[in-house]
């Protein structure tokens, strides 16, 4: 996959992108019900880098992913998010995607009556600003579906409808491959995958990395996906913020020791 079509098609400055998150505070719920989930997140992801975010259930990892993508359920109460200097937080959801952001969701949504092929073409048209050339497009889709070991019948099925957990995740990575984002956030793409599927999906991400200097923010519970997708940085995420950062050796430490120490620390600082 080293064809010229594999270069990033998003607009923007030449060279690699940079996503900068500064002191991000996010709540869910309204009024008295509002609950602060993100409590000051700082993170910089450059094109070509792979960052793993690891943390216990409920620590706010998906909240971070959704907030960057612009899900209406979350309210930003402080901080900034920029992509190549542009303010992401003032963009609509679709503008963020067209600016080069991509979110592979932990729980991809079913869209009845909308076929995968129609959806993919509509999305690609939106991202590149013009309808993809039919012949190369069909070939690109087919090639990538084969690589992800997805049967071609999926193209005619409705988006995520009746897909198994693993099929949904392959479909997310298929979109990443076809839409060629500058920054991709993968929210627990590894969960629900058996060993073969994990390998297939990871190889998809690695092909994307080989094709273009995409920045990857890999959210996960487990280290097993990190054996396939090598992180440059590992961040430990607890209670709505990053509590420790390091290289891939940090993942090994988490594998052996778990989050217990961090969770305890974080509770103490929260009380203080």
């Amino acid at each position: 996959m080293t064809s010229p079509t594999a270069t990033p098609t998003s607009t923007g400055t030449a060279g690699t992108s940079v996503l900068e998150i500064r002191d991000l505070h996010v709540t869910v719920g309204e009024g008295d019900e509002a609950k602060e989930i993100l409590r000051g997140v700082d993170l910089t992801v450059r094109g070509g880098e792979t960052h793993a975010i690891m943390g216990p259930n409920g620590s706010g990892k998906s909240t971070l992913a959704y907030s960057i993508a612009g899900h209406p359920k979350y309210t930003i109460t402080g901080g900034t998010v920029t992509l190549d200097g542009e303010d992401v937080l003032t963009m609509t959801v679709d503008e963020r995607a067209r600016a080069g952001l991509f979110l592979a969701m932990q729980y991809p949504v079913e869209v009845p009556g909308v076929s995968v092929s129609n959806f993919l073409r509509t999305a690609a048209t939106a991202i590149t600003g013009e309808a993809p050339k039919l012949r190369t497009w069909v070939k690109d889709v087919r090639t990538e579906m084969e690589a992800l070991e997805m049967d071609s019948v999926f193209a005619e099925r409705n988006v995520n409808e009746g897909f198994s957990g693993g099929e949904k995740k392959r479909h997310e990575i298929l979109q990443m491959r076809l839409l060629k984002p500058r920054i991709a956030i993968l929210d627990e793409t590894d969960s629900g995958l058996d060993v073969d599927a994990l390998r297939v999906v990871s190889e998809g991400v690695n092909r994307a990395k080989a094709d273009s200097p995409v920045g990857v923010l890999l959210i996960t519970h487990y280290t097993r996906i990190l054996r396939y997708i090598k992180p440059d940085y590992v961040h430990v995420f607890v209670n709505g913020r990053i509590v420790e950062e390091g290289g891939s050796e940090l993942a090994d430490k988490l594998e052996n020791e778990g989050y217990a120490a961090y969770v305890k620390d974080s509770k103490e600082t929260a009380k203080a």
């Binding site: 679709d94 959806f119 839409l179």
Partner: peptide, 29 residues
Amino acid sequence: DDEQLFYLCSRGIDAETARRLVVRGFFAD
């Protein structure tokens, strides 16, 4: 459904096109 619209928009599809896709799908069925 907000979640369906969010999913489509998060792939770069503008809100109006997303709504059209959803209604079209609703009836195509």
